[in-house]
Amino acid sequence: MSSPAGITLDHLCKTFRARGKAVEALRDVSLDCPPGSFTALIGPSGCGKSTVLRTALGLETLDSGTVRMADMGPEKATRAGLTGVAFQDAALLPWRTVAQNVALPLEVLGRAVGPEQGRIRELIDLVGLKGRENALPGELSGGMRQRVAIARSLVTEPRILFLDEPFGALDQILRRQMNIELQRIWAETGVTTLLVTHGIDEAVFLADRVAVMQAAPGRIVDVIDVPFARPREPALFSDDRFHHLCDQIAGALHGGHHAG
């Protein structure tokens, strides 16, 4: 795996105008994710988390501000195969099997799929879908589809990974399992990760830093460091310091502005 690359979001501003109404989705959002870091983005529904991800990937145009990844703009970075993404919706192609859906990013980037068959299988195993390689999305549960999307986000061996609530449809136990797997993959590959989540505990367990957003206008109100040593064990979930940090983040989420 090549060296990881960082993400720099610099004063992003974005206002959606639809049917006469304007929604200020992002106001002056700046965030610096150093190479190999793990950042969680947390905030109330509709505050602009997905929009941050989409602008970073060049899917939305910005009113102002810049996005840099490994010294490239979004267009160049995505085309170079630097990034991997799992959206909030699994967005699987209904006519492709699980394995074919996982392979899609490779095909889009014009890479050969044949030599990667082994890895595609491993990724499908990794997300717990062994034996369903040839199933169609319509035959899977919502959680299974989401796991296919996770496997798909890793197939290109990205240096930067964007995850938009990737575990939203999973049960608590599976979610924990996937959290631990994700930490392992992140540690092994050193991929710079930006994770959008609604789960405070998930954010604290996985991230180096948690960025807290507020809505209307969408903005980052706080960035909280998570000091726990790596690798983090499931026991951390019942640690007092862990809970203390979760409470602090919950406070920031509820608008309680504290110094720092």
Binding site: R54, A91, L109
Partner: peptide
């Protein structure tokens, strides 16, 4: 499906892709 279209574009795919 615009979501699937977004996915392809997120990997640098253009109109043709």
């Amino acid at each position: 499906d615009s979501r699937a279209g977004d996915l392809v574009r997120a990997y640098g795919g253009g109109k043709a892709a």
